[in-house]
């Protein structure tokens, strides 16, 4: 599963949303995801992919979350 799909599925499960309604440009706040929710989402993704995720910028859209997760994966791969 690619990173975007993984995030969309996790959010859909948690918020009772239809995963197909979530796009890369969806703003987190528009689906009720605040900073605590985002922190919890990253924790769940960490658990899933087994690498530590430390966001370096504010997460406004799904695209930002995807970039953050991919960056963590790449950093982990480079070791």
């Amino acid at each position: 599963m690619d990173v975007f799909q993984m995030i969309a599925t996790a959010l859909a499960d948690r918020y009772g949303l239809d995963a197909s309604e979530i796009t890369p440009d969806t703003e987190l706040i528009s689906i009720g995801v605040d900073s605590l929710d985002a922190a919890e989402l990253l924790m769940a993704l960490e658990e899933k992919i087994g690498v530590e995720i430390e966001p370096t910028k504010k997460l406004a859209t799904i695209k930002d979350v995807v970039a953050t997760v991919e960056a963590a994966q790449n950093e982990s791969d480079s070791f």
Binding site: L36, A39, E40, M43, E46
Partner: peptide
């Protein structure tokens, strides 16, 4: 500690 929920305290 990385798995302690951000919602734990609230």
């Amino acid at each position: 500690p990385r798995r302690v929920s951000p919602f734990f305290v609230p």
